[in-house]
Structures are given as C-alpha cells and as structure tokens.
Design a protein around this nucleic acid. Structure first.
Length: 262
DNA sequence: CTAGATGTTAAGGT
DNA sequence: CACCTTAACATCTA
C-alpha cells in the first residue's frame, strides 16, 4: 500500500541496504514499468555507478546515482523493494533488478505493474514538470490552509490530489478525515480555520504515526479506522456501522455519526 | 463468474 | 476554467 508512509519505509530500506555498491547490471524483466527509457539505456546509464543517497517527495522516491542522474521510482498500487543478499532468487513479480558487484541486488517488485521506473536529471525539475504539490509532511499550516481554501470540491478529493498535496492516498485519507472527525465530502472551501487546523494536525499525526509504526497495520492503534475499513466494520469510537461511499472517485469509509459534514 | 482493490491519467460532461 | 464521473491500465482475491 504505497502511500507516503510506505514510500518513506522504502526509502529507509533502500538507504540501509543498497547504497555505495557498484551497480554491475540492470535486469529488466518487464519493461512495462519503464518510463521514457529503454531497458538497454537504463542499464547503460547506471552500470558502473553507485546509489549515493535517496530523497522522497510524496509517493515518489529518487535515488542519486551521479551528477544529473537520479533513478526515479513510483510504487503504483503494489510496488515494493526487496534487497537480495548473495544471489537470493528474486520474487516472481520483480520487474527490474539492480545487480551489485558484491553479488547482492535490489529488486523492484510490482505485481500489478502500475509502478514506474525511470531516470531523471533533476529532482526539482521533475517535480515541477509533473506538477506535484508540496509533500504532505513538509507543508506548513499556512500553505495547507491556502490550498484547501482555494479549491472547491470534497475535502477528501483535495487530500488525494497529488498536484495540490503530495503523498496522501485513499487509505490514509480516510484515517485523516476520521481523526479530524470530518465527513469526507465536506466542501473544502467552506472549512473554517479551526476545521483546517484540525485537519492539518490529523494529517501530520496520521502520517507520522504510520511511519513510527513502520506501516505495520497490525500495530496501528485500536482507535484507528484503518483496521476496520471493510464491510461490516464498526466505528472504533462509537461502535456504529461504518459507511462507504464513492467520493473523489474512490471508495471512502467513514462513520456518519462521528464525522460531520461541514 | 464478478466486483473491487492501495495509484494515475485521459476523456468527456456539466 | 474548475470540477465531476467514468474508464483504462495489470493482476489477484473475496
């Protein structure tokens, strides 16, 4: 479930496993995930280089491999990284494998192939071109407020719009709205300062807590909606049945009693 | 067998 | 222009 917290975990995983090793080869097992680059070119540009550091923005991960050379990873719906120690065999759905000269490797695994692997020259330029908004954990309250109040539409749709705020996906958006006790369909432009402050606090709290718990769903607090986000799920706060509705094109789960429409 | 699933984008409508 | 909905992508599971 690669939303901001999961991508942050992938960043830390990559940082702790895959830096400073000489890239000896790049195997592309399915070029469907390659973005604007051929398998041959990807290998040609990366071979002989080392991953130096990584940066995350929203759901994107950038790995520096040289001057003006960054690997860009997006995890789509099912993307994940797996470090393969000493020729350990890659998972069947590994789409790209970065082989290191120490016989270890980093696999980009992606069952559903909605992920993206590409090379870019400049992170800032990429963010601009892609039109991504500020990272959900970097944005300030004034910035958050400005974005929400300037746009019409359901609050949840704004939270999900990567061009406005980058990193929040469908699951965490539901949790954020639950913690802020706000109905997902509340008109964003109508939120008052105290509502915005609540929503901002919930955003930071949910994302930070998810990271602190290493995005392990089994360890999420019992008070969270996420663990009950399913048919016949009940509100952890009041015990009433949760409802689902399509908002912003995605399925939303919420408690109609605790989350009032503003 | 069918519907739906964590992400993104294009197309068409209001 | 700003917003909405729907469909599409690939693949698995309930």
């Amino acid at each position: 479930m690669p939303e901001l917290p999961e991508v942050e975990m992938s960043k830390r995983y990559l940082d702790s496993t895959s830096l400073h090793q000489r890239i000896s080869n790049v195997e592309v097992h399915d070029s469907y995930v390659l973005e604007r680059i051929s398998a041959r070119e990807l290998g040609r540009r990366l071979r002989g280089r080392r991953f130096q550091k990584s940066e995350r923005h929203g759901k994107h991960l950038f790995v520096r491999a040289g001057d003006e050379l960054w690997l860009r990873l997006h995890f789509g719906m099912t993307g994940a990284l797996e470090y393969l120690k000493h020729d350990k065999v890659a998972p069947k759905t590994a789409r790209v494998i970065f082989r290191f000269s120490n016989s270890c490797a980093l696999a980009f695994d992606d069952q559903r192939k909605f992920g993206e692997v590409g090379l870019i020259e400049n992170v800032e330029k990429f963010l601009r071109t892609r039109g991504l908004g500020p990272d959900a954990l970097e944005i300030s309250f004034p910035g958050f407020k400005a974005i929400l109040s300037k746009h019409r539409g359901a609050t949840k749709a704004i939270l999900l719009n990567q061009q406005l705020i980058a990193g929040i996906g469908n699951l965490y958006a539901d949790e954020i709205l639950f913690r802020a006790r706000m109905h997902p369909a509340s008109e964003a432009a109508r939120l008052r300062d105290k509502d915005l402050a609540r929503l901002f606090r919930a955003t930071r709290q949910v994302l930070a807590k998810a990271i602190a718990l290493k995005t392990d769903f089994n360890r999420l607090p019992k008070s969270w909606l996420l663990t009950r986000r399913e048919k016949r799920g009940r509100c952890p706060r009041c015990g009433r049945a949760l409802q689902s509705a399509t908002i912003g094109g995605r399925t939303s789960w919420f408690c109609a009693h605790c989350q009032k429409r503003i």
